[in-house]
Amino acid sequence: MDQKLVEEEINFQKSDKFNLTMIPGKFARAMRTCVIWQFIRFIVINIKMIIVVGKSH
């Protein structure tokens, strides 16, 4: 029988613990290191952090 091998799903089979959580797919993982998207997130995260830091001082 042909096996469909999806890279992000491989770890699900490694243990029951792994199987009961969520593992990011190819797109989500690619976005984590996509420079353009991460630059936008960099701005957003900094704004969020500055708000929390401001509320804490």
């Binding site: 984590r32 290191t33 960099f42 995260i45 969020k48």
Partner: peptide
């Protein structure tokens, strides 16, 4: 509203 988290390259830059 003020408790969040995400993983990525942006976090490393920070």
């Amino acid at each position: 509203d003020y408790t969040f988290g995400e993983i990525g390259l942006a976090g490393h830059w920070i």
